[in-house]
Amino acid sequence: MLKDLRVSCSPHIGQRYSTRQVMADVIIALAPAFLFAVYYFRQYALILVSTCVLTCVLTEWICNLICKKQDSLGDLSAVVTGIILAFSVPPSLPWWSAVIGSVFAVAIGKMVFGGLGANIFNPAMVGRAFLTASFGMLMTTWTVPATIDTAAAMPAVSVASQNVDARTQATPLAWSKEVIKHKADVKIVNGQIREMFFGEVGGCLGETSALALIIGGIYLLIRKTISFHIPLAVLLSAGAFAAIAYFINPEANMLPLAHILSGGLLICAFFIATDPVTAPLTRRGMWLFGIGIGTITMLIRVVGEYPGGVMYSVLLMNAFTPLIDRLFKRVPAGGKPHV
């Protein structure tokens, strides 16, 4: 019993939340998005989420066993990683590649650094990055939600890919790339804002429904599990960037609202960027971090080659987090710290 008690210097602050509680809150907040995913993508959603969560938990358990570390499954962080990874991949992704991604996310993204709290990058995004690099074709094949009858609303893109057997459709963002490159009609995307809000478009498993993600985000804000700084900074900077782009050339750019509702921007703002381990600690740092993510995402979307840039922007800003923390180091009462 005594070895579990740690005594450190004052001042002592009573912590209301344990890691376990924080993670449980995040899981609850992700529940609406999960329900929407099951509604739109049926069995795909169930298979993917259960595979990812199971593999993540199992990988963490095995890693702890190998390193002879104390079992850390109780903090539920592996479950959250699994859910977020499953939410950020296309619904038609085969189960085995979800397994590979989950193992990579937890083993390489988290456990080799020394477990939760020591990882530099968001584990789920590390796993997704590995999947994108390895199975590019599978990661850009978008299944149409089961509730839509025809894919007529959004014409299919990329016919020249092989082995596509699922019914596919361009995501709003992929279509917007067409608009920029080949002068396709931007109105098709802008006319879909209602569908984007409810999630009736092609896209990653848990990212399509803006409504569900906003509900989850508000729950986290009310529970004070996350502070409002990062989500607000991400959404405001992305919105501002999109507004400027739209103002300059409305023919080639989507509406700012469409940009915010599409792709992974909302799930990133509320669930991925706010990961307490890989985000800065101070308020000013959080603003900078959020603005960085929003701006880089929009840069990739509007100027770059990839349709969605959330994953890369999060990973990039994760790398900057230690520097940001250093920049906005808190000054202790009574003077500047010795640097």
């Binding site: 850009t140 020249a160 890919s161 490159k181």
Partner: peptide, 9 residues
């Protein structure tokens, strides 16, 4: 020429 999806560049 139809581009390769994922390798437009």
């Amino acid at each position: 020429i139809v581009a390769i999806s994922g390798a437009t560049v």
